[in-house]
Design a protein around this nucleic acid. Structure first.
Length: 569
RNA sequence: UGGGACGUCGUCUAACGGUAAGACUGCAGACUCUGGAUCUGCGUAUCGGGGUUCGAAUCCCUGCGUCCCAGCCA
């Protein structure tokens, strides 16, 4: 595979704008923040990144770069019960792999715990926050409902000094989990539930992956996020739609504190057919062993699609072209696959591999002889050069490339028919050998020595070219063929009483253990992505062992014959 | 039945009061040593109803539909 192309060039293909870019253009025009642009990508380290995050990453990094700014990578690590270092590591690795460089250093909300605490004290002092002794259940009961206003906490008007003292003792670890919270004093009658005296701090006697046991109170998202943005001087805080209702609260804290005010802008999260983009559900798939891990090639995680063979350039291209809006929609998986094929078509070297072998003996070819034929590596890229492929008397072809009784539009091999072997000779099928059960086990063919290289001197044409591998020189391999992890377009569309697991596609993984590869395919590095001619794009899996490669099918080639066949049924 | 947001080809996105455009998909064809790639052609899609306007996808009113919010998750 040749090195990455110029997919990074922002001006390469002028794309339609989007409402966020429009906002930034306008901000630049009026000189907001003196033209400075700083965005951030703020994952919580409680799972692996997926394609939805890729959209956010491309948006944040892409936009800031476009406006001459930078992007912070900040871990939103305010919930020690769910967060782990493993996730931090994977996220850093994934962002790098996608091809983005954040502004050093990597940031952590936990780095701001002291500042956040000091600000909380300040809010208590100014009468804008109070320590509440209600437990979780009581808080819920006081909150009211969507249609009814909430009730004030009985502790809402307790003396400031008392709240200050209690808050200090919360921090000192005097109280068990859940017994008290720090709450903002806003409006229990607000139609926006987020404004009904939201919890700012809760007591959590849990060890944090970075701060250890230094803290036993932890800030809530709403209290931590905006202030973290402010501390870093984020100009545009881009997040997904479900945070729209939180924006008034985001703005409220910043305003009460009188600190730098970033602007939160919400966009629609990515949805894909046949795909689940929910960390919680992906975690469940991993924990319950429905997949082999976070990097199972069927997973929509960045680690998964990387192992599957999706190039980062293709993902970036996809993200750059799907657009950004506030509409809740579901993108067709086929669009993603289009960008993967588009990228791989330009860069992947072609090889021949037979997945379901059918033995072919060339009767008129000399026994024990081998000749090396020239094959073009990539018709889309002349600089990829050529290679030699061994040809001999016994070959394998694809079972699907032979039919004893060919239907109308089937152009491939059948009794008496002549086809071309890619880069090789024309052959004619003379007879079919079957076992006792009637299964086809071998084809006896003859070849035309004059057609070496694939052309006939007399100019006669064949309707098909098929791929093949010399039996004597073949590398045995395992190939894993994937289809969607879920059988339904919308995996969450389930019958009463069932959950998304009931939509798992039982055939999402097909292991082909007896594949025959041309020799060059036996020595490629893990993650190398190539095209198996006429089949699809495949990449070397990390499970490969010396002499026993394992390939993943990244994506199949578009298949006109498959369509015809399907239509006939 | 409170609040917030959103409704444009099958799907996603554009059009910012002035000819509804692009990508993907699909179909038909050309070309081809990959039934790949490439190329060509095919589109009455603005949620409904009123209104403002010379002119409305765009502005106003109204109806309908979809999504989000009642974690001490993010």
């Amino acid at each position: 595979m040749t090195p990455p192309n110029n997919a990074e060039t922002p001006e390469a293909a002028p794309r339609p704008s989007n409402f966020i870019r429009d906002i930034m253009v306008e901000d630049a025009r009026i000189g907001k923040h003196s033209g400075r642009v700083l965005t951030r990508f703020p994952p919580e380290p409680n799972g692996y990144l997926h394609l939805g995050h890729a959209k956010s990453i491309c948006l944040n990094f892409g936009l800031s770069k476009e406006f001459g700014g930078a992007t912070n990578l900040r871990f939103d690590d305010t919930n020690p019960e769910k967060e782990e270092q493993e996730y931090v590591d994977s996220i850093i690795d994934n962002v790098k792999w996608l091809g983005f460089q954040w502004q050093e250093p990597v940031c952590f909300a936990s780095d701001y715990f002291q500042q956040l605490y000091d600000w909380a004290v300040q809010l208590i002092q100014s009468g804008k926050a109070f320590v509440c002794d209600l437990n979780a259940e009581q808080v819920r009961q006081h909150r009211g409902t969507l249609t009814e206003p909430g009730k004030h906490s009985p502790f809402r008007d307790r003396p400031i000094e008392e709240s200050l003292d209690l808050f200090a003792r919360m921090k000192a670890g005097e109280f068990p989990d859940g017994t008290r919270t720090l709450r903002a004093k806003i409006d229990m009658a607000s139609p926006n539930l987020n404004m009904r005296d939201p919890v700012m701090y809760r007591i959590l006697n849990a060890e944090h992956h970075r701060t250890g046991n230094a803290w036993c109170i932890y800030p809530m998202y709403d209290y931590a996020h905006g202030q973290s943005d402010s501390i870093e001087g984020i100009t545009h805080s881009i997040c997904t739609l479900e945070f729209e209702d939180h924006r008034p609260l985001y703005d409220w804290f910043v305003q009460q504190l009188g600190i730098f005010a970033p602007r939160q802008i919400e966009f629609d999260r990515l949805n894909l057919t046949y795909t689940l983009l929910s960390k919680r559900k992906l975690l469940q798939l991993v924990q319950d062993n429905h997949v082999s891990g976070w990097d199972d090639p069927r997973m929509p995680t960045l680690s998964g699609i990387r192992r599957r063979g999706y190039p980062p350039e293709a993902i970036r291209n996809f993200c750059a072209n799907i657009g950004v809006s506030k509409t809740n929609g579901i993108l067709e998986l086929g669009l993603l696959e289009h960008y993967v094929r588009e990228d791989l078509n330009k860069r992947a070297s072609r090889y021949m591999a037979v997945l379901k072998p059918l033995r072919v003996v060339i009767d008129n070819y000399p026994e024990g002889e081998t000749e090396w034929l020239d094959a073009v590596n990539n018709p889309e890229d002349e600089s990829a050069g050529t290679r030699k492929v061994p040809f001999s008397k016994v070959l394998y072809i694809e079972q699907d490339d032979f039919k004893e009784d060919p239907p109308k539009q089937f152009f491939r091999l059948s009794p008496g028919r002549e086809v071309r072997l890619r880069w090789g000779f024309y052959i004619v099928c003379q007879s079919v050998v079957k076992d006792e059960a009637g299964n086809i086990v071998e084809l006896r063919c003859t070849y035309d020595p004059l057609t070496r290289g694939g052309g006939a001197p007399d100019g006669r044409k064949v309707k098909a070219t098929i791929h093949w591998v010399s039996a004597e020189h073949a590398v045995n391999a395992e190939v894993r063929v994937y289809s969607t992890l879920f059988a339904k377009e919308n995996p969450n569309d389930v019958e009463e009483g069932k959950d998304f697991l009931s939509n798992i596609n039982p055939d999402s993984l097909e292991v082909l253990a007896d594949c025959k590869l041309e020799p060059a395919l036996g020595t490629l590095a893990v993650e190398e992505c190539v095209q198996f001619e006429r089949l699809g794009y495949f990449c070397v899996d990390k499970d490969s062992a010396p002499g026993k490669p394992v390939y993943n099918r990244t994506v199949a080639l578009r298949d006109a014959w498959a369509k015809i066949e399907k239509r006939g049924k």
